[in-house]
Nucleic acid binder design. Structure first.
Lengths: 208, 208, 208, 208
DNA sequence: CATGAATGAGGTTTCATTCAT
DNA sequence: TATGAATGAAACCTCATTCAT
């Protein structure tokens, strides 16, 4: 039907993504995927090693695209001119990309949801953790640069970096459905930057 | 131990929780749970209808306990004296409880992870969504009261309310493991209240 | 509740008979029988060895009663006077008893149905076949006596003897439901005695 | 043998028929059937929905073949010539077919035995009762035609029609094993036509 | 004697995977 | 390369039977 290779692989990937997003792993039968994609069951095994491989390839591909976008978008000071707002700009770009990706791939976080530490150990994608680490580092470094530049004030950047994807995921999975991409992004940035506490006057305060 | 009783049900629940947190649903065999709990396979079916029921009961029980704690802890203005900082106090209590629960039940969010909109529809716990809604409302209302009191400033409280559990989950699932309960809680509160942007002086800012 | 022994055994028997008549052996759970009889599951094992034993005891008891009735009713010439119609009388009595028993125990033939050669070998009631043989002999001998007396004419009495219960069973299992005991009995006798072919000479005959 | 085909279905059917005739339903394991047929356990589920479906399909197929044979053999007056003995001829043909089928499929009545009103309701073969009704009608109508032609004399043809298969079943299940097909058929016809009572007038008659 | 919670062997059924076509 | 019939390991689940109470 299509060119032997890439087209069909993409067809499988897309079909599988849809089904895996609809129901949990063990309720999706390879037969369903094959039927939905209008191909034979055996064909799946030409493009993927087994069910798990298909599943993880799916998520990995998406994750890879996300990180690659971020990597290019949030390059550490691309131009050698004087970027005063680099940190705020960086966070904005990161958040924008993250939210944009989430809206563009509504299934992705639904799939990502099922990936946890327990699963990660047992799959052959050795660079999976590498990828996750790169995302974490990308965000964390942006914050650290902001701190170094006196722009930000964060005692635990690694935590904040972990929060950011978590917030995006929250909305996609359980948040109100009627919000626009911009609203979500702005709200995340608002929290990230200023929180929600009204500042009556330049008064100090302590949390603990 | 000849009456169908609480103790044994709790034993099963605890054992199952441990296993389900270690590996995904379809890799946990009921036989393993039974063996680990030192009971017969059939005994499981005295206390639970089937594998799914056991699984969901597990999570539901945990979720119920969490919401119940929050419900009592974050009562809307318990005393009629003049508590000016009710909102900040409320958020602190909620976050404390949330984080405390997360640390106390390290498996819970790992389990919760596998519950998504797709799964929720098809399980008999009718009040599942009710419970989720109560948590959302509990947080949201706290914020709204803060806004009404002029204490907080948040154009989208429903989003913020969704972010809060999301942040807790992030840490438990992917965050650095070496942080104390207090550190996590404080960092979440810091973000929630002030964000991480250094305020040099009362300067305005624009997001878009 | 009742006297320790006989009453309860009868209760079990009756309950089990009802259920076994409703659905096949493997769809009747001992739990159902116990529940229906309002007794504990374990109690069944006080009165019966196991499920099969209960089942076969059931049928055997009924069969025994049937044969015993026939044995006394169709005694071979009880009085030493000159009974000219002994054979016809005997067949009538047998048929009457057979049909009467079938109507009185509507479940019995439904149960009997599930007993076949294959099953018979594997059950401990050694005298089961003896009982069946007694019934066969009882009928067969009646016919043979009729033949010897010049009253009947049947080259294969053993076959006819086998047909008789078969005809009764047919009606109980699949025959029209609206017929009276007498109608069924008379029709069987009619066939047995004269068949349905009209005899060319206008010879009258009356059955009852 | 790579297409889901007739041959394999027939192989399964034959094997299953043999086993189900040897022991009762719940003592026949699908594993046995598969092993005996030299196929995989899963293959059974390609051709049949489940154990019950396999079982009922088995009997239904046999029953269908029987009725179809009868339907063609006992067509209502096939030729417009003057067949005076149509009724007797019809009964003879029916009985011949019935007995022939019974001898040709010695397992069939053994299987049929386990089918009763209780079971019939709960199985998906909607036309099962239709088939049974067709058999009943086929016989009944033959008798009625004989009555109308003045050939037969039977006040309850529907009962007689029910008796006929019952008699055949009797022999196959419990009758003496050493009789030939013809002997059985003739004896049934003898009963059906003239009964066994010797007619006082010295009137001769021959069955065959 | 009576009970019913507990058991676990063994049944039915599913489905990822293979391989002849 | 593509297929889908065939496979059988392994999962879920049932239920006859036991035994502590």
């Amino acid at each position: 039907m299509q060119r032997p290779d890439e087209k069909k692989r993409a067809l499988i990937t897309a079909t599988a993504a849809r089904l895996f997003a609809q129901r949990p792993f063990h309720k999706v039968r390879l037969e369903d995927i094959a039927a939905e994609a209008k191909i034979g069951k055996g064909t799946l095994y030409i493009y993927f090693d087994n069910k798990e491989d298909l599943y993880f390839s799916l998520i990995y591909d998406g994750f890879l695209r996300l990180v690659e976008r971020l990597r290019t978008q949030v390059a550490p000071a691309p131009a050698p001119d004087g970027p005063a707002q680099t940190a705020a700009e960086g966070l904005k770009r990161i958040t924008t990309e993250l939210v944009s990706f989430a809206f563009g791939h509504p299934h992705f976080f639904e799939l990502m949801r099922t990936i946890g530490p327990g699963v990660l150990k047992s799959n052959p994608h050795a660079d999976w953790n590498h990828l996750r680490h790169e995302l974490q580092t990308l965000i964390e470094d942006t914050i650290r640069r902001g701190i170094a530049a006196g722009e930000l004030d964060d005692p635990l950047p690694q935590l904040t970096a972990a929060f950011l994807p978590g917030m995006v995921r929250s909305v996609m999975l359980f948040g109100p459905r009627c919000l626009s991409e911009n609203e979500v992004r702005d709200q995340i940035l608002r929290l990230l930057e200023h929180g929600i506490m009204r500042r009556t006057e330049p008064a100090g305060h302590q949390t603990t």
